[in-house]
């Protein structure tokens, strides 16, 4: 049973065709990295996977749910599919603890003691136990991003999506976030990430898909894709990111 299946997905913004007949599948516990030039459609594809963008054609099954836009069905899907954004998007008026507890309390209807225990558990997972009572603006960018990961993790999702989660960070802070993600991968989380960190994709991802002009131009196990690019576009892209 695959954790993610995308078949025949197309998407346009007005007259701009952003995704063209995308087909993908990913086994439980694996990591898929999406790479490609700016504007090639990576974020759009990722955002289609949890319904933040609507697809025009095709099917998506993720975390055991068939994607549908009926509000209640979409919320059930999102309980099982977490997403982490480039800009963290923590809730600035809530402490770290309350950021993490919000969805378990409101969505899963957990009593606050249980939600708090879960929040402390996931904060420990990302190495920020002591920040429970801090506000987001008291944390560094890297710490905020780790809290955002913990916030998603608190819902115990089946699949996690990451959209360039280190791109807004200073180089010395990207490491701590990548380590957090690596640990998550090792714990068996199914993950899809859009990334510009080629060495991370090469060493941690199981499968890497190179997107070009709204298509999956090449897809292969990480080592093969980087060692033996088959198309000129990928070769050029890889040499430009060195």
């Amino acid at each position: 049973m695959s954790a993610l299946a995308v078949s025949g997905v197309s998407k346009r913004f007005g007259s701009l065709q952003v995704l063209r007949d995308i087909n993908l599948s990913l086994e439980k516990g694996q990591m898929l990295a999406l790479i490609g030039r700016s504007g090639s459609g990576k974020s759009t594809l990722l955002r289609c996977m949890n319904g933040l963008e609507r697809i025009d054609a095709g099917h998506i099954t993720i975390g055991g749910h068939a994607l549908s836009y009926a509000p209640a069905a979409l919320r059930r899907l999102r309980q099982d599919v977490g997403i982490v954004f480039q800009a963290y998007n923590l809730f600035p008026h809530l402490t770290v603890g309350r950021n993490i507890m919000l969805a378990p309390r409101l969505v899963l209807r957990w009593p606050s003691a249980r939600a708090e225990a879960r929040a402390r558990e996931v904060l420990a997972t990302v190495g920020l136990s002591e920040k429970f009572d801090a506000y987001p603006n008291q944390l560094s960018g890297g710490q905020q991003q780790r809290v955002a990961i913990a916030r998603s993790l608190a819902m115990a999702p089946q699949v996690m999506l990451f959209d360039e989660v280190t791109s807004a960070l200073d180089p010395e802070l990207t490491g701590e976030v990548l380590i957090t993600m690596e640990n998550l991968a090792r714990s068996g989380m199914t993950m899809v990430l859009v990334t510009h960190e080629m060495s991370f994709a090469r060493s941690i991802a199981h499968i890497v898909a190179f997107m070009h002009d709204g298509r999956i131009h090449e897809i292969a196990p990480a080592k093969d894709l980087f060692a033996r690019p088959r198309t000129e576009e990928l070769r050029r892209f890889l040499s430009s990111t060195l």
Partner: peptide, 9 residues
């Protein structure tokens, strides 16, 4: 968007 993605109504 972040709250929406966390399945809040």
């Amino acid at each position: 968007e972040a709250a929406d993605a966390l399945a809040l109504t």
